[in-house]
Design a protein around this nucleic acid. Structure first.
Lengths: 239, 239
DNA sequence: TCGGGTATGTGCCACAGCGTACAGACGCAG
DNA sequence: CTGCGTCTGTACGCTGTGGCACATACCCGA
């Protein structure tokens, strides 16, 4: 009988060849990741990296005045803590659990040792980092040019892609913090989407009813990120 | 008598230990980089990487409707073409010369071979990439929360940091394309700065008269990027 | 069952930025 | 010196979003 938890639910771990995976496996520690957990603080040294399986992690920048903006989002497709192997050990951003679930964590030293060998893990993590860079770049573009409603669509789709069901637990207030807009703006945009029958929500539960229509309404940013992620992280790793 | 052109004007090349630098040196090709040169197209395979010395390169995303937004800027502090060693070979962005000058380019294969050895060059490029990530993330934040005038200040300071003089050749129209705003918005913001005696400009020449006051008026984004770049790329590389 | 906290809906005003149009101002080529 | 193209300045209305205030709806626990 298979365990409900398996590190290979994370796509990066799943893409590793068996021998490299075997090196990491004894060190992978299953951790619950409840909503709101702070994985990294701004400027703090990274002690563990996290491979989410069912949780979703949000990378945020918090401004001096307290308002915030989401930079990128990480789910079972990725890893939180790239500054470790990029060599900086910390970033000015924070990482917060946006959707509760589980993940596997690894002590910094273990990952670094394996990364330094320069084998498949390194290639994989660097390609993933490039996908993350694309996501950040597109976030910048979207923040510049697109309306709140479109950004909400993008955000919903990015979350949906990282969840097993089409229901997400997330208040409008939290979404507003992620997007860096007013809560009322989210209320209004979500009202439109609900009126059009694309979603249903009530008190922190959002259900996506019609994903195709959502994709029809989103800005090009979503597709750019999706296409690039698929390209970079198709299971066949090309060297 | 020293040549006016020296690869070590580029800080990444300058930070390399002599033996690794020696491997690259025979392959480094001095190239003029006139204003507007397209170094990479969206999705095109990277054939060369560029180490600017006196030129400045802008990484842009161009939307389907033709409008654009700057993602990050690269000068003598960096390298254009990170997708090569990150493993993706291409990105959805373009790279354009924003300020004319020179740089050294290297064939993709040469850089990749040296990068794969996993020595100082690799560490250096990855740390630089992290600095670039910070710049992108902060661009996203700035686009979300800050006014055009502050973004103009940030843009001027980022450019100034990568130039030898305090004069930049750049029409307001071009700046507007970079920032992804209207030309009139730049005119207005620049008018304020000129009235306050911070800058002087006329027909494509902008002279910064009072940098300290410019730094006083810029949003926190500039300092975040600067601090992180300095931290990651101080000449002593820590392993 | 009732109360209090939380989540959502709505309205109002202010204003920055967009789209558009057009008027100077400057510089270079002829 | 003249004319034309380019760059910069200014004005107008419009809309999306921010800041604020408050009303309603829902849930959970006492």
């Amino acid at each position: 009988m298979p365990s409900p938890h398996d590190p290979r639910q994370n796509h990066l771990l799943a893409a590793l060849p068996v021998d490299e995976y075997a090196h990491l496996l004894p060190h992978l520690e299953l951790v619950p990741m409840p909503l709101g957990t702070l994985l990294y603080e701004s400027g703090a040294k990274v002690r563990h990296v996290y491979f989410p399986t069912t949780a979703i992690v949000s990378l945020l920048y918090v401004m001096e005045n307290g308002s915030s903006a989401e930079i990128a989002v990480v789910g079972y497709d990725g890893i939180a803590g790239i500054s470790l192997f990029m060599g900086g050990e910390s970033t000015p951003n924070i990482a917060v659990v946006q959707s509760a679930g589980h993940g596997y964590r690894l002590k910094a030293g273990v990952l670094l040792a394996e990364f330094t060998k320069g084998l498949d893990l390194q290639h994989l993590l660097l390609r993933y980092t490039q996908a993350l860079i694309t996501q950040m770049a597109q976030t910048a573009v979207c923040n510049r040019h697109h309306a709140v409603e479109q950004q909400l669509c993008r955000w919903l789709l990015l979350s949906l892609d990282r969840l097993p069901t089409s229901e997400l637990t997330m208040t409008q207030d939290l979404i507003a913090n992620m997007l860096g807009v007013r809560r009322e703006g989210v209320t209004e945009a979500a009202g439109h989407l609900q009126a059009a029958g694309l979603i249903h929500y009530s008190r922190g539960k959002i259900t996506v009813l019609d994903r195709p229509k959502l994709e029809a309404r989103v800005c090009e940013c979503y597709a750019v990120v999706k296409r690039e992620s698929d390209r970079l992280l198709s299971d066949r790793i090309s060297h």
